[in-house]
């Protein structure tokens, strides 16, 4: 019964994100554009780019995920759907989990899938490309979940966009460090296992805690 409601909300959010073609396409375009901008800034020398490729890719992915966060709850808050979701048989915690999962699938996964292509542009060491894909797939759920909390906290605030990124970026430091660290370790030939495990631990910790915090924040917005 609850699963039916959970899947319904997840599928609806996913369909809305993909059908309008807005979110996913926009996020990927932003990701590609940000990565492509770096050579214009630091110069095209391969060894310079390769050295900082893990950092560039992860920061760009992080900012791309940040881009579409304020659309996570705001449309539902403004058109009244949030009341419907709050009154459904789905506890608010699971509803926020469903929305964060839909956000992950519509932004996190495409970012991860396209990252190997961009790694080639930045001359990243081929050994590290598999780790890059793995680290993004493991790390982006944490980005969506932590972002979900920030989106719920800033719901209905003045200037939500700026406020949301100010709240989220300090909390994105650990995933960024472990994610980029894993890719860099792989690029230097060292085993990235420990970094990936730590990143996985972050995501697993975020899985129960973030929906709980986001639901508490949503209740403030509803009341």
């Amino acid at each position: 019964m609850i699963l039916a409601a959970f899947l319904a909300l997840f599928r609806r959010d996913l369909r809305l994100a993909l059908r309008q073609g807005g979110d996913t396409g926009l996020v990927i375009a932003f990701f590609v554009l940000t990565v492509v901008l770096f050579p214009f800034g630091v110069g095209p020398e391969p060894e310079v780019l390769a050295r900082s490729a893990p950092g560039i890719l992860w920061v760009a992915a992080l900012l791309a995920a940040l881009l579409s966060l304020d659309r996570l709850f705001l449309p539902d808050y403004e058109d009244g759907s949030l009341d419907l979701i709050a009154l459904s048989s789905l506890p608010l915690e699971l509803a926020t989990l469903a929305k964060c999962a839909a956000h992950w699938v519509s932004t996190g996964v495409p970012l991860a899938l396209i990252s190997p292509a961009l790694a080639l542009i930045l001359d990243l060491d081929p050994r590290a490309i598999a780790t890059l894909l793995a680290s993004l797939l493991i790390g982006t759920p944490a980005l969506s979940l932590i972002g979900g909390v920030a989106a719920a906290l800033t719901l209905g605030a003045r200037r939500q966009g700026v406020l949301l990124s100010l709240l989220v970026l300090p909390l994105y430091v650990p995933p960024l460090i472990f994610g980029a660290g894993a890719v860099e370790a792989a690029a230097l030939g060292m085993p990235p296992r420990v970094d990936l495990l730590l990143l996985g631990a972050l995501t697993l910790a975020a899985l129960p805690l973030c929906p709980w915090a986001a639901a508490a924040a949503l209740r403030q917005a509803l009341g």
Binding site: V149, L153, L167, P170, L171, V173, P174, I177, F178, L198, L202, L209, A213, A216, A217, Q220
Partner: peptide
């Protein structure tokens, strides 16, 4: 709520840095 989320993240940030 943000303060509580922040204080939970503090040791994680310290460890990761």
């Amino acid at each position: 709520i943000l303060a509580l989320v922040g204080v939970v993240n503090l040791p994680i940030i310290k460890f990761s840095v």
